[in-house]
Amino acid sequence: MMRHAKKREIPIWATKPAFIVGIIIVVTAILISFFPQFIAPYDPIEVNSKAILVAPSAEHFFGTDNFGRDVFSRVIWAARIDLQIGVFATIVPLIFGSLMGLIAGYYGGVVDNILMRIIDILMTFPFTILVIVIMTILGQGMRNIYIAIWLVGWMAYAKLVRGEVLVLKNAEFIEAARVTGFSDKRILLRHMLPNVVSSAVVFAASDVVLCMLTGASMSFLGLGVQPPTPEWGAILNEGRAYIMNAWWITFFPGLFMAITGIGFSLLGDGLTDFLRTKGK
């Protein structure tokens, strides 16, 4: 069609403004998390008894908290921890879950059956509840947040990749590879994986939001990152007691979390669009 041909000539940033906004937000967030020391004017954990609960001003952009700590500096430094949780809590399930899905889908059989049954049962449970239950067993702390999310998160990827493998298994080029006598390992890694991994990666982009929010929720409940470490959920939790007279402690960390979350969601949506058009 003519319209279609014309569309191609328009540069990508003009047709997908939302995707570009997403990329800008995510890149900015990553830069902040790498170089907080160049942006934050104060030490995030430095107590200042002379400036307690000061409202936002030129000196303290986001005000100060009950220990006189600069909220802006805390929010900036927190980006490092929150992004870390978002990214690393996603990467491990992405890799492990995809491999499990690949193997289960390719070989099938009893193991696949049992595995999928267990995943189906566990996945009907809310993510938050599963993570909290595991946190209860493991105890509080940042390391345990990772472990809890890893233990729960891989299942979605396994299911997703397995579904794709089942479709692909009967494709002609896989048949051809098998007839040629390639080993299972080669077929799985060289032929299957490149074709199924894209949907898992796209899912991961929005999964980062879920993992980041879950990590922050755990810290908000007091189960995760412990004070005085700056983390968005933890700062919000500390600010909750002062909500009546110091709204800035809760407002700004949440705002940063919301913007980062929206950035990753836009990125994920944009990637999904690309995948869909590629598929057609």
Binding site: G233, L236, M257, A258
Partner: peptide, 9 residues
């Protein structure tokens, strides 16, 4: 994409 506890607060 937003944390529910923030919206609540």
């Amino acid at each position: 994409s937003m944390p529910s506890f923030w919206i609540g607060l």
